[in-house]
């Protein structure tokens, strides 16, 4: 096996305009720090408040979503934010049990069929139906992400073996706020 070179890693991040990347277990403290860093970075770039808020909330939801689906006890995962010409793309990735994937994929493809008003109705319905469940099942979080971004949620499943896969969830936040 070739040595792991940070420079390769750095170059890959640069090539994709990654402005923030993290691998590990995302504790509350780490999340606060990263969220603050994103705010400062985007403010310095002169981004609009409205876009910064969308990126912030999508980032927080995706980061916390990792804990919900991570197959690793520590809730490990990867989260990265890329900047493109017309949008910011937020990606989260983690190992998950294969048995979880079907329902997650169904959930996401259903959410992606809904328009703005339908998402609103679905969101409110889920808030009610999940209220006594003790734990929010991720529906509200995913619907919130879809509402906030106004773009489809993209799920990629990388099969590892019969037990687990590495899943990637990514969402684009358009720079053009007129759209939403």
């Amino acid at each position: 096996m070739r040595n792991y070179k940070l420079f390769d890693h750095y170059q890959a991040l640069e090539a994709h305009n990654v402005i923030l990347a993290f691998k590990g277990s995302i504790s509350d403290k780490i999340l606060i720090g990263m969220a603050e860093m994103i705010n400062v970075k985007l403010l310095c770039k002169g981004e609009e408040q409205k876009i910064i808020k969308k990126i912030f909330s999508t980032f927080v939801e995706l980061a916390q979503n990792i804990h919900l689906y991570s197959a690793e006890k520590t809730g490990e995962g990867i989260i990265a934010v890329e900047e493109h010409k017309n949008c910011y793309k937020i990606n989260s990735g983690n190992l998950t049990g294969n048995s979880e994937i079907r329902s997650l994929a169904d959930k996401i493809s259903y959410i992606n069929t809904l328009g703005r008003d339908q998402l609103r109705v679905f969101y409110n319905r889920q808030l009610k139906s999940e209220r006594k469940a003790g734990k929010v099942g991720g529906n509200v979080g995913l619907i919130g992400i879809a509402r906030e971004s106004g773009n489809p949620i993209c799920l990629t499943v990388n099969h590892i073996d019969e037990n687990q896969s590495f899943i990637e969830i990514s969402v684009e936040i358009s720079k053009d706020t007129v759209k939403t």
């Binding site: 939801e61 916390q64 808030l127 999940e130 509200v140 979080g141 919130g144």
Partner: peptide
């Protein structure tokens, strides 16, 4: 800002 779980609790 409220995340989704906080929104549920607020509800």
């Amino acid at each position: 800002y409220l995340n989704s779980t906080s929104t549920k609790h607020m509800f």
